[in-house]
């Protein structure tokens, strides 16, 4: 019977919507994807992909400790996310070890700490859902927290949209005209930590970095305008989320993996066919036919 329902696109889309958990998953994942997509254009331009990976992995022990103590998991994640960056900066400054080595070293250390803590603190923490995400099993309190964090990040990014763009583009000029670069640096880090926290519910800690860089990278191939880049990034993130969840529903696949895979395919499509920056440069091809 399942095969028949594939035949109409209508039921492919509407059938899952009869389930409450699916409606919730689709809504929450789209929201999270939009926020991560928004941030993503800054991270890709700033060259913070590795930093995003580091922060998202480093929040692990924070999430575990917060759960164990009954605190909001976002608080623990936030402390460890920002803490890892501070530690990276400190080690880099005080030793001769190169930055990418320090980043790799610190975040794997934190991540390992998180895994060890999970095995020691025998509570109701589901390691699998932290690592791989569980958008279908998101609880009501998590929903509230996620909406709150998403709104906070969107408001912060919207207010400081232009300053952050300047900070990514030319921090020296920002400083010269009296803009607080230190504040912007930590603002971006804060948003990164918060986005990592909400993102990990959708796709899990291991893949959350994809939510933070792939939509931005896709958009970067498609436009030369920053505002367009943000819009494209947000939309490609939302669409990937929807595709990922639907596909995982119908084919019984891991949801987090499906979402990220959808993002990767959209990126590959842009990589091959982007009008100006794609391998096949569609614009030129069409121009040739005229």
């Amino acid at each position: 019977m399942e095969l028949c329902s594939f035949l109409t696109l209508d039921s492919f889309i509407t059938d899952p919507l009869t389930h409450e958990f699916m409606r919730k998953a689709l809504l929450m994942s789209s929201l999270v994807a939009a926020v991560c997509g928004f941030l993503s254009s800054y991270l890709t331009l700033k060259g913070w992909a590795l930093m995003g990976d580091a922060v998202s992995h480093s929040v692990m022990p924070g999430v575990v400790v917060a759960y164990a103590l009954g605190l909001p998991f976002s608080l623990g994640a936030f402390i460890f996310g920002v803490g890892s960056v501070a530690l990276i900066g400190f080690i880099k400054q005080k030793s001769r070890v190169k930055e990418d080595t320090v980043i790799g070293l610190v975040f794997t250390g934190f991540f390992a700490l998180g895994i060890v803590l999970v095995s020691k603190i025998k509570s109701n923490i589901d390691l699998h859902s932290i690592l791989f995400g569980s958008p279908l099993g998101i609880s009501l309190s998590d929903v509230k927290q996620t909406i709150f964090i998403c709104l906070l990040v969107v408001i912060l990014l919207s207010i400081f949209r232009k300053d952050l763009m300047l900070y990514c583009f030319d921090p020296r000029h920002a400083k010269t005209v009296g803009i607080n670069v230190f504040f912007l640096h930590y603002l971006l880090l804060t948003c990164l930590s918060l986005a990592a926290v909400v993102g990990l519910q959708s796709v899990g800690i291991i893949l959350v970095v994809a939510m933070l860089i792939t939509p931005g990278a896709t958009a970067y191939l498609l436009t030369d305008k920053f505002d367009n880049m943000t819009v494209i990034s947000v939309f490609s993130a939302i669409i990937s989320s929807l595709i990922g969840i639907y596909v995982s529903f119908w084919f019984d696949l891991e949801t987090g993996g499906s979402i990220v895979l959808a993002q990767t395919f959209i990126f590959l499509f842009a990589f091959l066919f982007a009008p100006r920056y794609g391998i096949f440069k569609l614009k030129k091809l069409f121009a040739g036919y005229k």
Binding site: L45, F169, Y220
Partner: peptide, 26 residues
Amino acid sequence: YVPQNEGIDSQFPISVWDVVMMGRYG
């Protein structure tokens, strides 16, 4: 401050108008 050409990311998605407008941000 007028940077060296090498000191800026020339692939940044930003137009001439927007760069010059950055001079007014402060």
